[in-house]
Amino acid sequence: MKLLSLNALTVRRGECPVVDGVTLSVGPGECVGLIGPNGAGKTSLLRGALGLLPHEGTSNLSRMAPAARALQAAFLPQGHDIAWPVSVEVLVSLGRGPHLRNDKTDAAAVTRALARMGLESYRHRTATQLSGGEQARVLIARCLAQDTPLLLADEPVAGLDPEAQIKTMQVFEGLAREGRTVVASIHDLGLAARHCTRLVMLQQGRLVADGAPREVLTDENLAKVFGVRGYHAETEDGPVFLPMGVVR
């Protein structure tokens, strides 16, 4: 049973393909990091897969009816978009929209999502008055409340402080252990190496590497795709990767 299955997915901006024939399949229990330099097509890949952008090739998600898809996959967009001054509780409960309304299970799911993101004390705060990082965590909680087998997140840890970054990645790891799947685009290669079970590397819209973090973050790939060289080590806390310098 594949949760995400893309076959030769191509997304064009005008004539130019920004996602170019990506074939990818992700099963349950994975925490996949989508990495690549700016403009590599990470956001377009996620939006195309969901059917939010017109595309060629196939995606199992974009073929679904919108209501069915919303029960299968939650999506965290890149921008922290909150239009109205609603409370954190109300904002997170928007994730329950696709489900049949049931006040009891909805409230339980919201409470679970808030607890998971460590946001219990924020429940009655006004979402628009929070800091950018706090808003980002609230929006992740909204996706968790949607309670889907698959979570697609576009730069979920950008703008978070180190503690929140690690905690968020641990939440994703926890979801994977429960048999759910997270596909998250990430710029911090160190976090990706530490917490993801699998990395997918994009360059100019093409998938150039796919596998365990150690197999993807090779010196050759890093030089070719990111133009950096890095420091690798295995520690008690797991693999460490740090970009050290540029090579071009």
């Binding site: 898809r69 999506f75 967009p77 909150i82």
Partner: peptide, 10 residues
């Protein structure tokens, strides 16, 4: 409230 992309994904 969450923007057009998020609304569509919901």
């Amino acid at each position: 409230t969450l923007g057009e992309d998020a609304a569509q994904s919901l």
